[in-house]
């Protein structure tokens, strides 16, 4: 049952990544695209966590944490760039 649940969940996350790609293509403005990238990194963390659950291993925890941190910093830097035209003032 658990493996079935994981398979269904992986399917759902992949579907949501595809929907995100669709929004990334549609735009229409830059903040929309940043928001979509932000959602995509959260979804990819979910995918990594699911893979960890599937293998019953906590080896992937560091990868998930790294994506979480870099994703946040990336989003913040992109927002700052759009706000000021400059990342470091």
């Amino acid at each position: 049952m658990l493996n079935w649940a994981i398979m269904i969940a992986v399917g759902m996350i992949c579907l949501s990544l595809l929907l995100n790609l669709w929004r990334l293509y549609l735009g229409p403005d830059l903040p929309d695209r940043i928001l979509t990238l932000d959602t995509m990194y959260v979804n990819s963390i979910a995918l990594i966590i699911l893979f960890g659950i599937f293998l019953r291993s906590s080896l992937f925890f560091e990868a998930a944490l790294l994506i979480a941190m870099l994703g946040f910093v990336g989003t913040a830097a992109l927002c700052k760039y759009l706000l000021r035209g400059d990342i470091i003032e």
Binding site: I8, A9, S16, A46
Partner: peptide, 29 residues
């Protein structure tokens, strides 16, 4: 325990999917 974990996994993925559906469906930024 297995049942509980399965429900949590599917619910979590479901919420992520709903978030992405909202991203596509909702009208403005």
């Amino acid at each position: 325990v297995e049942l509980l974990v399965s429900i949590l996994i599917v619910a979590g993925a479901g919420f992520a999917l709903i978030g992405s559906i909202g991203l596509v469906r909702l009208p403005d930024f």
